[in-house]
Amino acid sequence: MLNALEVFTTVVVGVMVGVEFSVAFVINPILNALPEDSGVLGRAHGGRMLGAVMPVWYITSLALVVVWAVAGWRHDGTGLVITAGALLVLSVIMSVLLLVPINNRSKTWTPDNRPADWQQQKNRWDRFHYVRVAVIIAAFALLAAALA
């Protein structure tokens, strides 16, 4: 049963990492390259869609890691799982304090109502997101190592 939990948790976190990596290095560059104001509209839609899904995914991932750490307390790799959990906690804190406030503003933007500093806010979100992606990649790598 523990093995199934370990694999399931690693897959859930891994897919979350894939989505966030794709946002950072595929989707946002595509949206940035679109003509005129299409990128603003695309980011607003993405902010609404992913803004609804990702909080659940982050919390579920963290909960699964906690269950794994507790269930596998006396097994090899528990320190790696705990460290991965700490990194996921950091990613949630970063999200709530740094990324969500910008996302909550930007998901309502249109070409007609965006603020004058919208480019700076977009770039700030991107920089914070790159750091968050690095943090969750590290968490995923630790979980994968704990499986070995």
Rank of each mutant, 00 (worst) to 15 (best):
L97V: 11
F140D: 12
N123T: 03
A134R: 02
D37F: 10
F128W: 11
L99W: 04
A138S: 12
V23D: 06
V92G: 12
H75R: 15
V70D: 04
R43A: 01
I59A: 12
A24W: 05
Y130K: 05
R43G: 00
A141V: 13
V67M: 09
A146I: 04
L142R: 07
W125D: 00
A144Y: 03
A69Y: 10
R132L: 08
R105E: 12
V53W: 11
V19H: 01
P55D: 11
V66I: 15
G72Q: 12
L98G: 13
L88V: 05
R132C: 07
N113K: 07
S38M: 15
H129D: 02
V26G: 01
S22G: 15
A33S: 15
V53N: 03
F128D: 03
I136C: 05
M1W: 08
G39N: 09
I136K: 04
A134H: 06
W73I: 13
L142H: 03
F140S: 14
L87S: 02
T83M: 02
A33F: 02
A33Q: 08
A146W: 05
V11A: 14
V81E: 07
W118S: 04
S95G: 14
R114C: 01
V53P: 02
N104S: 11
S91R: 00
T10I: 08
A141K: 00
L147S: 02
G42W: 01
V66P: 11
N3Q: 11
Q120T: 12
S22H: 00
W118M: 06
L64Q: 06
M49S: 12
R105F: 00
A69N: 10
F128N: 08
I102H: 04
H45I: 15
A86W: 00
M49K: 13
A139C: 10
A141E: 02
Y58D: 06
R48I: 10
G47L: 00
V92R: 03
T60W: 08
A148N: 05
W125F: 05
M54G: 03
I82D: 07
V26M: 10
H129T: 00
G47V: 00
V53A: 09
S106R: 12
N113Q: 10
V53E: 02
A24Y: 03
I30P: 00
A24T: 10
L90I: 05
L34C: 09
F25L: 13
V92H: 04
V26W: 08
S22M: 10
F128I: 03
T10L: 05
G42T: 11
V56H: 11
